[in-house]
């Protein structure tokens, strides 16, 4: 879970001795630290794709990271449309990503 962590910094004080927590994304277990957001926890684990576009299925990840763009929305705590960038990850949290949805009424899809 530390592949992408900042491990050395000349100015900033790095967070240390943080409590480790476990969570699940797309049925896979991952580890994170307390204070991580869902987005930072997943990126620290090397996961960039957070959902697929409802219609085209194109892969999407974090874009603005401050809650403006809603690209990082996932399902967490049983709630849809949760912004991974603004939501602290919790121990035991189950997170799942948005999938491509069928478009039965769209022209040419028959």
């Amino acid at each position: 879970m530390d592949a992408f962590r900042v491990t050395k910094h000349p100015v900033l004080k790095l967070k240390q001795n943080r409590k480790e927590i476990a969570f699940v994304f797309e049925d896979q277990p991952y580890k994170a630290y307390e204070e991580d957001t869902i987005a930072s926890a997943l990126l620290a684990n090397g996961i960039r794709m957070l959902r697929r576009h409802e219609e085209s299925g194109s892969p999407r990840g974090v874009y603005c990271n401050i809650g403006h763009c809603f690209e990082c929305r996932v399902t967490a705590r049983g709630e849809e449309g949760v912004r991974a960038c603004l939501t602290p990850v919790e121990d035991g949290m189950v997170v799942s990503s948005g999938k491509q949805l069928p478009t039965p009424f769209k022209e040419g899809d028959q």
């Binding site: 960039r48 794709m49 957070l50 892969p59 999407r60 990840g61 974090v62 874009y63 603005c64 990271n65 401050i66 763009c69 960038c85």
Partner: peptide, 8 residues
């Protein structure tokens, strides 16, 4: 995924 704003 992997494309982000500079602020992100």
């Amino acid at each position: 995924p992997g494309v982000m704003s500079i602020g992100a």
